[in-house]
């Protein structure tokens, strides 16, 4: 990971020219797109052929193996990234220059763009697939071919970027370290809670509901937590608010040096 994209400060204090590095951002979008498409292709290849009978050995081989691999890998990757962000934090965050701070705001925005991108694949694309899968086939396990991707792959991926954006902001941007952005907490913790809410979902399916009405109140926990996406508006306003102070300083310097 490049220092610039992670907002590390050390050698740039004297620079008067403002610039942004898009490399890591573009890489994340491309890599995620490939990852999601591969996940969908895997469902296409092995959903109906190996994933209909949870008691069969093929199911174990193709689906439970994937489940056992993806969970530690994806959560492990998240934990590594968050730890890295923390360890490489600016140890004197108050002292960063306006250029660095402005750049960090841009990078925070990019984190949030990638987070939003992940929300799309999870909340729309794979959730839609989950809906149609469960109305098509009979549910005989909580670990169905659509759940193994939706709940146990795409959710850890968006957590990677949601929590990542939070750790990034807290370790790189003074305002987000000085105070805790309420709306940022909502935007990250709401979707995060979808994961524990799965417990309620599966409990309900086990005891009450074997039929798939997608709009059943049992699923509304996910809905309320999904509403938290709106809270990113607050983060946007926090960013814009700080831009008002930073932009004149950064670009005045730039104009003076020109």
């Amino acid at each position: 990971m490049s220092d610039a994209a992670l907002g590390r400060t050390p050698n740039v204090t004297g620079t008067k020219t403002f610039s942004i590095n898009y490399g890591l951002f573009a890489f994340a979008i491309v890599a995620l797109t490939i990852l999601y498409i591969c996940a969908r292709l895997y469902q296409q290849a092995f959903g109906f052929s190996m994933g209909l009978d949870a008691s069969s050995p093929e199911f174990d081989e193709y689906w439970m193996t994937l489940f056992k691999i993806e969970l530690p890998v994806l959560y492990g990757a998240g934990a590594l990234c968050w730890t890295y962000l923390f360890l490489t934090r600016d140890k004197n965050i108050e002292a960063i220059t306006p250029e660095v701070e402005l750049r960090s705001y841009f990078y925070l925005t990019m984190w949030l763009v990638v987070y939003s991108f992940c929300i799309f694949w999870t909340g729309s694309f794979f959730a839609d697939g989950d809906g149609v899968w469960h109305q098509t086939t009979l549910r005989d396990t909580p670990f169905t071919p659509s759940h193994i991707i939706l709940f146990y792959a795409t959710i850890p991926i968006y957590l990677f970027f949601g929590v990542g954006s939070f750790v990034y902001a807290m370790t790189r941007i003074p305002a987000f370290c000085r105070g805790i952005s309420l709306m940022h907490v909502f935007a990250v913790v709401g979707p995060f809670l979808i994961l524990p809410n799965l417990g309620f979902n599966e409990w309900g399916h086990a005891y009450w509901l074997t039929e798939e009405i997608f709009s059943h109140p049992l699923h509304w926990g996910f809905v309320v937590l999904g509403w938290c996406a709106l809270a990113l508006a607050g983060v946007l306003m926090q960013i814009v608010g700080r831009f008002r102070e930073l932009v004149p300083i950064v670009f005045k310097q730039d104009a003076a040096s020109a």
Partner: peptide, 14 residues
């Protein structure tokens, strides 16, 4: 993408 995801999820589950 944020509202494609959140809004579509909301509609599907309600």
């Amino acid at each position: 993408p944020l509202f494609a995801g959140a809004f579509h999820l909301h509609v599907m589950l309600t």
